[in-house]
């Protein structure tokens, strides 16, 4: 499943420094943790006003995970 690629595509399309975007996935049996690293100055872009963009990414991720009966957690790291 391309959860990692999904988050990477979204993040790179939102930031000023796409080269600094790093996504890793720690896969569990039921739950996967996706870690998104962006440049410090791009943090606001992936989080958005009142966390709206981060929430949108998480919502999309949840929908994609539901489809394969899994659960995904997104961690945004500076």
């Amino acid at each position: 499943m391309a959860m990692k690629e999904l988050v990477e595509y979204i993040a790179k399309a939102l930031v000023d420094n796409p080269d600094a975007v790093k996504v890793s996935e720690i896969e569990g049996e039921k739950t996967s943790v996706i870690e998104l690293v962006v440049a410090k100055e791009d943090l606001g872009k992936v989080i958005g006003k009142q966390g709206r963009t981060a929430r949108a990414i998480r919502t999309i991720l949840s929908a994609a995970s539901t489809k394969i009966n899994k659960h995904s957690v997104l961690e945004i790291i500076e």
């Binding site: 939102l14 963009t53 949108a56 919502t59 929908a63 539901t66």
Partner: peptide, 24 residues
Amino acid sequence: GLLIGKHGATLDAFQHLVNKIINR
């Protein structure tokens, strides 16, 4: 209904992200 989500949350998420990306 997967793409709609609870009260349209998933649909709104698509809309928000596409808007962000396009406006950028």
